[in-house]
Design a protein around this nucleic acid. Structure first.
Lengths: 185, 185
DNA sequence: AGCTCGCGTTCCATCATGGAACCCAGTAGC
DNA sequence: GCTACTGGGTTCCATGATGGAACGCGAGCT
């Protein structure tokens, strides 16, 4: 009955989601990118309960997203600094930002926009392939088992269903006209 | 004591997180992009409890991410199809995928990789600005209040926050900021 | 008549959430 | 020397969410 753990699933999305599939964690990260580092700053900025904030920060430190650094000796004070593993989540936040502005803005428009620091021009994040520069869409991209995929699951049919990969799906993302569900069993 | 709602916060990230800041919702979305549409397929693929799956699907339908479509009359059967609002979350999943592969893969490598459907070449998603093609990084990008930002908060607090990562000095303009929830202070 | 499939709902023990109170070291004011 | 304040938490505990299991239900299959 415990809360399900996802961090051992053979899926990178599940592993990320195990950390980030939590509203407060993502919002704490957002504030960290805005430059907040101290406990009370985060508390005030988010209106989060101190106990929950403490638990989240502990977890994020344990997971290597943040680092707890003493910034003062007497009295001893700490701040939480972003580590590379946490900083690497920036694209996730930006993707959420873009979605929020496109699909969850009120009638008056997006509450917060992104601009280039230098030019001041609006920035709209898009996901593209590093090599080709082409947009990453469900139509163009396909998932395959990688080197870290458990062999047992590759061979074992009933378990394999749990991590259905590809090739069985006739209609990726439901983007086309094919409406029938893929034949199963 | 209720669970905090984020969908009214004047921040696009918070609004997205209100929906997506939940592990199961993201994983259901991932399966939907893999082509799964039916209740029992999702149940088997994710190993999720039927009650929880039902609640998540209801919410996702209510939020306009999925659509419940009859695919058969006698007996009546439904499937859940991705709507544009849900499909627009694909970049979020891809960003998570990339992070998971970069920062949560085991010693043997990523469990699942992305390839181009046509060329078979590996795909590595990066976030760039639509207009300039430049990578979207915290150093290059800055957040500003947009047209939908509540005036009360604008007048009340100096707009101060930006993306700050390293040892930049604390802004003397005072605490407070553009992204605080309406409830605080 | 009984079984299975597809798709849920109900029950309920345990887990997580979060408002509030409490704690503690050091510092500043009187 | 006494009091108050600040930064940074912990503890308490009433509720809400989670999730395994059992139950329901209409339609078809044997």
């Amino acid at each position: 009955m415990k809360k399900t753990r996802f961090d051992r699933w053979p899926c990178p999305v599940a592993r990320a989601v195990d950390l980030v599939g939590d509203a407060w964690t993502l919002l704490i990260l957002r504030e960290a990118f805005y430059g907040l580092r101290r406990f009370d700053q985060l508390e005030a900025a988010l209106g989060i309960g101190r106990n929950i904030l403490a638990r989240r920060l502990d977890r994020m430190v344990a997971e290597g997203l943040l680092e707890k650094v003493r910034y003062q000796e007497r009295p001893v004070r700490h701040e939480y600094q972003l580590l590379p593993r946490g900083r690497a989540l920036f694209p996730v936040l930006m993707a959420l930002h873009r979605w929020g502005n496109d699909w969850a803005a009120g009638p008056e428009g997006p509450p917060v926009t992104l601009v280039d620091r230098r030019t001041g021009q609006p920035v709209r994040p898009v996901l593209v392939d590093e090599a080709t520069g082409l947009a990453v869409t469900p139509e163009r991209v396909r998932a395959r088992p990688g080197p870290g995929f458990p062999r047992a699951l590759l061979a074992d049919q009933p378990v394999r269903r749990r991590f259905r990969l590809d090739g069985e799906s006739t209609d990726p993302a439901g983007a086309g006209g094919e409406l029938r569900p893929p034949t199963s069993r």
